[in-house]
Design a protein around this nucleic acid. Structure first.
Lengths: 163, 163
DNA sequence: ACGACAATCTCGTTCGGCGAGATATTATTC
DNA sequence: GAATAATATCTCGCCGAACGAGATTGTCGT
């Protein structure tokens, strides 16, 4: 609130979204520090839980891609989580090169204890929204996810001009 | 989409939001790698730009708090960004202990080149929303930010049982 | 079976981030 | 208005997360 005051309402919403990502990252870091883990470990657990919920088989390579790690870093991450008893490695029966990851109940409980209030709060918040309002929020988030997926594309900066 | 199919509509929206945070983190990491920086550096620049836009004076300590770093890490971060020519240190005239941080034009251009499409896309997307719909999105994001701020609170795990 | 390919793991190295404490500047107290 | 406390940042030494390169193990087409 200086010169440009409000910019546009649309930009303000974008900044609200960005504030969410920053604050959410902070919460993850706190959770990690409290449980003797690292931010990346927490992000990994979240990805694994989301994958399980979505029915997507979570392999080591997939997890590394989700987090932007190379294979060495991914292996180290999985070692850490395994030693901590948070996840288990299971060789895929179909393709025995692949390693499937399963999240232990302890980790689930731990995560729920920390993020439960946030999730509950969000659900409660959404219950105060009418159907069209919920639909607007859903449409917005879905759209942003699509935009983020688009922007991803290129393996290097030089090769992303779909238009 | 397996057994539990849809859970609740509210939870689905929460997961959409979480997907946004994960994907957004990935984009930041890519941007960092392409410019010889680290994810934290990018997050720092974003915080600094947001602060500038909001008219908030950005000090070293403030930045460290935003990113969850201690003072040593914060100093190292600022050194990196300064050496890279992305930011400049300026001693506060009023309180000469404090160091104010200003983002250089080069960094702004760099960031805009990478995140511009995402921002533009989001603004475009929101333009397709009616006033009540935009208001719904804004209310949702504001509420989530409030929840995240609440959850922050506790310095340790033992003292947060509001229920 | 054989070679091309794919997924994961091992090794050695770099450097981001932490803890502890030093330094410089501003508030407070007598 | 000197002595003291409080605050903001920086320096030093160390740990370990993540990287690059390459080895290992498993799959698939021919």
């Amino acid at each position: 609130m200086r010169e440009e005051a409000e910019e546009t309402a649309e930009l303000e919403i974008f900044h609200l979204l960005r504030a969410v990502t920053v604050a959410y990252g902070l919460r993850q870091g706190e959770f990690a520090a409290r449980n003797g883990m690292h931010p990346t470990d927490v992000r990994a657990l979240i990805c694994l839980l989301d994958a399980e919920r979505a029915g997507t088989p979570a392999t080591a390579g997939w997890l590394g891609a989700q987090l932007g790690l190379n294979s060495a870093g991914t292996t180290a991450l999985i070692d850490r989580l395994e030693h901590g008893g948070h996840i288990a490695r299971v060789r895929d029966a179909r393709d025995r090169r692949r390693v499937l990851l399963t999240v232990g109940d302890g980790a689930k409980r731990l995560g729920w204890a920390h993020f439960g209030p946030l999730i509950d709060g969000t659900v409660e918040l959404l219950r105060t929204f009418g159907p069209e309002e919920q639909e607007a929020v859903r449409r917005f988030l879905t759209g942003v996810n699509a935009l983020l997926a688009d922007t991803a594309a290129g393996p290097d900066d030089t090769a992303e001009h779909p238009a």
